[in-house]
Write a protein that binds this DNA or RNA. Structure first.
Lengths: 225, 225
DNA sequence: TACAAGCATGAAAATACTTCTGGTGGAAGA
DNA sequence: TCTTCCACCAGAAGTATTTTCATGCTTGTA
């Protein structure tokens, strides 16, 4: 999980940075609002942690600017300003959570995890690379690797795999597959789908018994993850 | 914004209910965990507010059960238990926010707005899902789950279940079922419907005595909810 | 209690799926 | 241009699963 921390006090920034890094998060620190904005626009972070009292642009302003610039990553305010007015103002500025200093590190981590969890639930953005167990699929370069070793797929096989991956955990009927992968509309009476599913199974599975592509008798096939 | 409040103390429930209603929110109150679960499964709420100490199932358990049943609405814990351990436990159980009593009403409202805002940010891919108690039926992916565990149905069984669900609380004659599910027009003298109703009953019921599909002697079957 | 209606079960029949064989046609190279 | 190769697809034989039916048993109703 990539985190951006905007905090001017070096000591506080250091403590949080150290703690989160030790827990395995990747943390970037910005010492003021303008730097924070630039960094958020340049890279994509999973969560942003903002102090409110910052030199230059303050945290509230920064938060509003981020939202204006369509930065939709969850924002958590971490600040000493603990009055209800402050909290309400912070949340109304577009933040997702508000934690008052002094705080317990465990609570910060729990809230970060919660924010990130929801984000993943929601924005299932189409990644260029996906992993299914030890299978790596790069949609842009159209390269597939099983346990680090390249798998040679023909173009039809790749399109079929892509369709399965983009619709995983759904039963896909042969009809649907024919339409989307082959562009055929109502030519039943062909078993190409079966044949190609069989090809794929042979090529992409590391061991024969764990089947990525399950057959659902009478309905179609499903890529189960 | 539709809110479900699960709170056993009538006084607290009343105050929150009144406050939120005055602000224009639509609030439903459940007095205990089981009722809360049922209501959440039956209707869709924008945000759920849970107390932790509840008669019967406690809030943590309820939260986990909700997530198991793929209820993804934001959950806010509202409780007097304010230690860091409690907060971390609550968030780890799948909640999105945690507010400690006593609280300022303005903060509650700000946090609710924040939770709802994030939810709406999401591009809701339209789902075609129905719940019958703890049974989850996804018509698009054709996946059925009982208490979070997948149920394997054959295609005929699924079509039959779908027909029942889409015509719940109606008595369906064998004739009608044969026509709509099997496409058979006047072949009486078969007991397939009986056989399949029994297959379904065995597969989808969590405990044997609560029968989803009731038999109406001399008339047919009915899915009662 | 008697009778009809519904239920449970096992085995046969029907259907669906896997896999192999081989033919076609287009592309790459000689 | 001709040959070779290989992706692609149809057919068919071999399996597996699902569906149906017939049967006896249980339950509900008059």
């Amino acid at each position: 999980m990539k985190i951006l921390l905007v905090e001017d006090e070096p000591y506080v920034a250091g403590v949080i940075n150290k703690g989160l890094t030790e827990k395995g998060y990747s943390v970037s620190v910005a010492p003021d609002g303008n730097t924070g904005l630039k960094m958020a626009l340049a890279h994509s972070f999973d969560v942003l942690i903002l102090d409110i009292m910052l030199p230059g642009m303050n945290g509230m302003e920064l938060c509003r600017k981020l939202r204006e610039n369509k930065i939709n990553s969850p924002i958590l305010f971490l600040t000493a300003l603990g009055t209800t007015e402050n909290i309400v103002a912070g949340l109304d500025a577009g933040a997702d959570d508000y934690l008052v200093k002094p705080f317990k590190f465990a609570e910060l981590e729990a809230r970060l995890k919660s924010l990130n969890r929801r984000k993943n639930l929601v924005v299932q953005e189409e990644e260029d690379v996906q992993y299914l167990d030890t299978l790596r699929i790069d949609f842009r370069s159209k390269l597939v690797e099983q346990e680090g070793k390249p798998v040679a797929l023909t173009s039809t096989e790749f399109r079929l795999l892509e369709f399965f991956v983009r619709n995983k955990n759904r039963v896909l009927s042969r009809m649907e597959i024919l339409e989307k992968v082959w562009g055929i509309d109502f030519n039943m009476g062909t078993n190409v789908v079966d044949v190609y599913v069989n090809y794929l199974r042979k090529k992409i599975s590391s061991n024969p018994d764990k089947k990525f592509i399950q057959t659902v008798v009478g309905m179609g096939y499903m890529l189960k993850v």
